[in-house]
Design a binder for these strands. Structure first.
Lengths: 253, 253
DNA sequence: CGTTGTCTTGACTATGGTCAAATCCCGTGG
DNA sequence: CCACGGGATTTGACCATAGTCAAGACAACG
């Protein structure tokens, strides 16, 4: 199943850009990146790795587990994006200095951190690798945009189906998908936060997906009998993930 | 009214990052940027500058007028973000190569374009300026995130109020706001596209804002009697714009 | 003046929120 | 092994927000 991203050779950063532009990284860039990453750390479910407004001097690569980017308002938490292994979750804050959002762990997670001084050095000495870093943050922006459209376009059951479709694809890109779905520590309340619905409505929407035979979400795993049916229901087109497809990049220059 | 951004000295790029990190640009960087920009062009209302999937070898700085980033699905147009003068509207595509979205003109617009070869040179020779470019794209991502939350959190009248509050502030940052509101060529249908509502519902929501005395949107201009009331109604906090406020950046390093 | 696009209004339906309560699930302690 | 407790999930009844279809008013422009 694992296609790209060699976690064995590069245990900390082997999944970075897997399925996208990893093929455009030279061996020496891959080694360089791996060496930039500091010691491996683990966090429990629900841990808030970074809070809005924190000044940060390092960025985090997610090795194992899942994370949620969140914003808070009126005592409610809103999910703005979801992260899977290989994602450079807060590279944004290298350019922004302060992060405008929180980074929350969903389930137990394993990470490594890269000091911003290393990234600055990369910008000065390795413009090609720097551009790949930039690319990875632009990928997040493209996913944000797609999600904005989907929030505007879709009803709750379809929004949830869209989340499932996207996460499944992204997990496959880093070698973590299964034939019939994927594993996830998400709770219904997390999904509610992610699609801006109440937990109660989310519950009914999940029941609807189950009844329709589109997706069966149960404690820790999503089973999807028919990918086409799911993606059609969710009006999901994977181009914006910049994997294979209409927007796929062969390489730079 | 104009605080930052000196369009006289730098007619093409003088508003870039005005109100944010422009103070962190050296005189030589400002000159360099201005020189990178090609000839000035104008486009009519509704012109689609770039379409999703286009491969681009230059990026556009908006000098005058307004633009809308849009995505299309099921024959409907969805606005994902709005742009004001000084915005580097499609710098994203330097890193992404193909753009995942469209760039549409709202009203007549004036722009200049910067070839990607120049930006590549900047990355190799001027890492500090390159980082400011990156910053400006991360600003877009931060605005996307805020908008995701607002879509999840707010009803239609409040969404519209939020758009007004944000656009007003951003126009002020580049010296184009007025005491009591701002001018805009937006139609009700555009606002509908931007907040994911039907034109009919948007019309009622605008009537609601008018009745409440929060904002009066009329052909080409928005009049806002009381900023505090608008921002409170919209649950608007300007931090995420990275102007003055909790997330403000003094400078890099 | 009529044509066209934009805006406005009305009546009805569907999607999602709120409050309240019941049930399920699983780890803990007896 | 079984009762207990707390979090997570499920169900029901009712209300609010937003979409749909249809039609009318308004304004700008020829």
């Amino acid at each position: 199943m694992a296609r790209d991203g060699e976690p064995s050779q590069f245990p900390k950063t082997g999944r970075f850009l897997a399925g996208r532009l990893r093929h455009d990284m030279s061996q020496s860039e891959q080694v360089e990146l791996e060496n930039m990453a500091g010691s491996i750390k683990t966090y429990p479910d629900g841990h808030r790795l970074i809070a809005r407004g924190d000044v940060c001097d390092h960025s985090t690569i997610l090795i194992d587990g899942f994370m949620l980017r969140t914003l808070e308002s009126d005592d409610r938490r809103y999910g703005v994006s979801f992260h899977v292994p290989g994602d450079f979750v807060d590279l944004h804050c290298f350019a922004l200095k302060r992060l405008d959002h929180n980074i929350d762990c969903v389930g137990p997670t394993t990470i490594a951190q890269i000091p911003h001084s290393e990234i600055l050095k990369t910008m000065k000495e390795r413009p090609h690798l720097a551009r790949l870093f930039w690319f990875s943050t632009m990928l997040d922006a493209a996913m944000h945009r797609e999600w904005i459209m989907k929030l505007e376009q879709l009803t709750a059951p379809r929004r949830i189906a869209h989340i499932f479709a996207e996460v499944w694809r992204r997990l496959e890109m880093v070698g973590l998908g299964f034939e019939d779905g994927f594993e996830t520590p998400l709770r219904q309340a997390d999904i509610a936060d992610m699609c801006g619905a109440t937990p109660i409505h989310t519950n009914r929407a999940l029941a609807d997906l189950r009844k329709k035979g589109i997706a069966d979400f149960q404690r820790g795993a999503v089973r999807i009998p028919d990918r086409n049916r799911l993606e059609e229901f969710a009006v999901f087109t994977p181009d914006y993930l910049f994997g294979e497809g209409a927007l796929y990049l062969r390489d730079y220059d």
